[in-house]
């Protein structure tokens, strides 16, 4: 009697896992723009792009799930103006999945799971 119950329990757990795993990540917004949250995300983005001292806004992922990163335009009268020469921007998305909140780099589709950060699903956004 004990053994069938155990098997059933195991099946239930596995089914649950499978059910969770099948939920595709969906676009999300941060529930809180705390400094700790923003710092963690900044480090993820810097790691993704191999850079440092990234400037992100305090309203990151507050109204949109899309983060666009581009090179800062430079102008100077010491040199001729650079006319905002810009590389193709990198796009990052905040997603929510069974694993929690994720950051996905759209171009490479690499993902990073955020630790102890809450987010809520949004819809109709790209």
């Amino acid at each position: 009697m004990r053994r069938p119950a155990l098997v059933l329990a195991l099946i239930a757990v596995l089914a649950g896992c499978q059910s969770q795993a099948q939920q595709p990540p969906a676009l999300a917004l941060l529930t809180e723009q705390s400094q700790a949250n923003l710092e963690q995300i900044r480090l993820v983005i810097e790691e993704a792009l191999g850079t440092q001292n990234m400037r992100l806004s305090q309203s990151l992922f507050k109204e949109t799930s899309l983060l666009i990163i581009e090179r800062q335009a430079l102008r100077s009268i010491a040199n001729p103006p650079l006319f905002s020469e810009t590389e193709f921007p990198n796009h990052f998305m905040l997603l929510k999945s069974s694993q929690g909140c994720l950051i996905e780099h759209r171009q490479s589709q690499r993902q990073w799971v955020l630790e102890n950060i809450d987010c809520i699903l949004t819809s109709g956004e790209d």
Binding site: N53, M54, R55, I68, R71, Q72, P80
Partner: peptide, 20 residues
């Protein structure tokens, strides 16, 4: 009139779009 140089680390500096 468009011949110049920039420090590479400065030039590569990234930010959120439109944020300064």
């Amino acid at each position: 009139r468009f011949h110049y140089t920039w420090n590479t680390e400065q030039y590569k500096q990234l930010s959120e779009s439109g944020i300064s």
